[in-house]
Write a protein that binds this DNA or RNA. Structure first.
Lengths: 218, 218
DNA sequence: TCATCAATCCATTAAATATCAGAATAAGCA
DNA sequence: TGCTTATTCTGATATTTAATGGATTGATGA
């Protein structure tokens, strides 16, 4: 009996290693960044706005939970998710959080509905329209992330270059902008810019990680 | 810019509330128990082998993360999962842990393969056999849990009563025993007992929570 | 070989968490 | 009404974790 308890404790403790990895806001942000493709420690630190040392120590936690892998390329060490299922779990966790936590819902509403954005939410019809060229799907993430993976039919204009590259976008069609996911503000900013210029632009909450979850557990 | 950071921090912090709820072995055990149906604090404490006070404080954490709900019935307060998606997330998390963590794989092997158990893993063929009556699917959990929900075609004999009720089981067919899930040892014990009595018994790792995840994200 | 850069390791402090004991509620019962 | 039972709340303590600064490693390139 006592022995059974010890075994059980051991088992749950192992699973809790995964839970702990998902228990820190900074680590979640790093996971979301890694969903966009492999990155160096320095890049991750810059994009998450935290120090390299702190980034390194959080990445160490993620590595010890076997959620990320590293590879040295010259001077740099690249981190990547150990498996697609890690990205899936991130999506699952933040989706559950959005379903359950009122505070989170309120914060998200504040972002999205400030300029009263319409949010595209029907994948099939969006893809159908994109295929026919009725809408332009616009990826505003840095181009390396676009090159790593992007939504079908999407074209890439990183947010920083958008001001200079308006000319590439047609004014007679709706522009659907997306970025890293619902907690990334780049698409929101892009939509604001585009509207200022007279485009009809809407904001897609989902990023590639959210998109590639095939099945919603209903 | 600074404002954007503050918003982002807020968002990830909210999601981390869910992560933190899954970051403690004791809380994971409570979640697994609640996957079997609603239970009082006392019952949860007894079944997780921890004090009522500690159980209460862990349940408080889960309640604050909005993962569980309470309902008073007379003297007792019943806890239940706030949504099926909480059970789904538990399955997702422990499945990822089993995929990634070698220590966990080793510990699980020690349990399951001690008596060289065959593990039933093909749901469709198991259900087909159960429907035809070629195998007996046996639920060895306490009967309240069976009454709350159970696998198709399963019959209930709680582990404690198994010794007295061997007569109810046919010796000419395979018995497939299951319990709360892969970290519950009741089915393992049941299989050991049954084999001792000359039954051909095998152990199904999955419980109702694992079973009811319809789609594996591949 | 030495200087440089990227990243980690180590030691320290501050903050958060787990656990336990005792007091406090809240409902049901006598 | 007061007593009992189930549960939570309030502190107190020990452990764990987050964050930071200084020293260290490992590969690169002059």
């Amino acid at each position: 009996m006592k022995d059974a308890r010890k075994i059980k404790d051991l088992l749950y403790e192992q699973v809790a290693r995964i839970g702990k990895a998902f228990a820190s806001p900074k680590r979640l942000e790093l996971i979301e960044l890694l969903c966009q493709g492999e990155k160096t420690v320095e890049t991750l630190a810059r994009e998450a706005s935290i120090s390299v040392k702190l980034t390194s120590s959080h990445l160490r936690e993620l590595r010890m939970a076997q959620l990320v892998e590293t590879e040295r390329q010259g001077k740099n060490i690249f981190y990547r998710l150990a498996d697609k299922s890690v990205a899936d779990l991130w999506v699952q966790v933040h989706t559950l959080a959005e379903d359950r936590l009122v505070d989170l819902q309120l914060a998200l509403q504040k972002i999205a509905s400030q300029p009263d954005d319409l949010i595209a939410n029907d994948r099939d019809s969006l893809m159908k329209a994109a295929r026919k060229g009725e809408v332009v799907v616009l990826d505003v993430r840095p181009s390396e992330e676009y090159l790593n993976a992007h939504l079908p039919f999407a074209r890439s204009i990183p947010l920083e270059e958008l001001r200079q590259r308006f000319a590439e976008l047609p004014k007679d069609r709706a522009i659907v902008a997306y970025c890293r996911g619902p907690y990334c503000l780049m698409a929101v900013d892009a939509v604001a810019l585009l509207k200022q210029e007279g485009y009809s632009a809407i904001h897609l909450r989902e990023g590639i990680a959210e998109w590639s979850i095939t099945s919603k557990s209903v």
